[in-house]
Nucleic acid binder design. Structure first.
Lengths: 216, 216
DNA sequence: AATATAATAATTGTATACAGTCGACCGTAT
DNA sequence: ATACGGTCGACTGTATACAATTATTATATT
């Protein structure tokens, strides 16, 4: 999955940014942890410049917080923040749904969703499943054809990834999630996009509820 | 107005980013124009490093597009993009409105709005008015108290600023806008937040309509 | 022993240097 | 005249060097 859609330059900073993201998702880097430039420069046998760019990127993606003259720190989100992120994500998805009208587009979308659903069922780890789950949701946004929506959606979704990894580590949570996404797929197949919007709303509310219960 | 909320480091890159934003708003830098690092390094008597960071920031804010090995270019938005931006902005504002429940907060909000309304009436240039207009809308978001909403709102609003400068350059458009914002203020004062949401929706639709008419 | 203070190390911010890539310009061949 | 190819220049990407600030440790003083 491509998380860093926009404005990426060279291979180096991209590689480093992806590695940092990976470390954040795995929990190796936790909220509050300091990210020192020279550490990753050594680790990748590069200079500090690309590391700096990677850190800069992740800070604009909401994963890292830069404090002047102090350094960069892994950003944490409160339960209220997560709620807001999920709410916004939901609204973006509904906006995306509005923009998918052509029947043949909807057909292609369904086909893609089916593929990703299969992938979701065969995931081995919570992290893999989190990526697949993102991919599923992203299909909708992608098919909106709106660069703006796509861009905003990635921005909102990245900070949620770590939360979701934790969320999906709950007992039987992945199975539940797969069932829900199957339902989304089926209802979408039969009733079209209007129905979809209400389902997505409910889906998001469930997730918010579940996250809240888990994190409190 | 503070447009670059998050993750800013030093004075230098901030200054440069603000100067670039200013040039974009004034129309001195237009979509497609190339932004060469050394040019602004010379202009500010600094090295390329802070300029690079400034360009990087503006690229994540959607104002500049970086193309690998090619350079940085002022980003342009199509009419469809603008529509999407306005739609998202509207949804963010409605989400913000949902989160303002305490009556005393609403009172303070109204007081602030009144002040900004006064400021809007005394603006000399379209650029000044655009800033004031942003300030007005931002009050709502600010009072939501949600860092996530605030962050996302700035991101969505920045690319709209240039469009709005153009929009407000139309004959009697500022007067019309002031009237509309006065109406928003009054209705908000009397009917509370539920009414506000429908007004904001209508306000956004008007703007979309007007922009579409102007740009086609 | 605890605290204040000074010296030192670590780290960020900025500047400069170098290398690789892209594009424009110019000449040559067809 | 136009198309192809090569050279040169401009600019980005990366590395290194220096400066300034913050954190840490050691030392001194009460």
């Amino acid at each position: 999955m491509e998380y860093f859609s926009q404005s990426f330059d060279n291979a180096l900073s991209r590689t480093i940014a992806e590695k940092l993201l990976e470390n954040i998702l795995s929990g190796e880097l936790r909220p509050g942890d300091k990210v020192v430039e020279s550490v990753y420069a050594d680790q990748f046998n590069t200079s500090r410049s690309p590391v700096r760019e990677a850190i800069y990127l992740l800070s604009t993606e909401g994963l890292i917080e830069r404090v002047p003259r102090k350094g960069a720190f892994i950003k944490g989100y409160t339960i209220d923040d997560v709620r807001d992120l999920l709410d916004i994500r939901n609204h973006l998805e509904m906006l995306a749904a509005d923009r998918i009208q052509e029947p043949h587009k909807q057909k292609t979308l369904l086909e893609e969703m089916k593929l990703v659903l299969k992938k979701m069922e065969s995931c081995k780890s919570q992290i893999d499943y989190t990526h697949a789950n993102y991919e599923f949701h992203f299909i909708l946004v992608k098919f909106s054809g709106s660069p703006v929506l796509i861009e905003m959606y990635s921005k909102i979704a990245l900070p949620l990834l770590r939360i979701q990894v934790i969320h999906f580590s709950r007992e039987r949570m992945i199975e539940k999630s797969i069932d829900e996404h199957k339902a989304i797929y089926e209802l979408l197949k039969n009733n079209g996009l209007d129905e979809l919007k209400t389902i997505l709303r409910k889906h998001t509310e469930d997730v918010i509820h579940s996250v809240r219960k888990q994190l409190l």
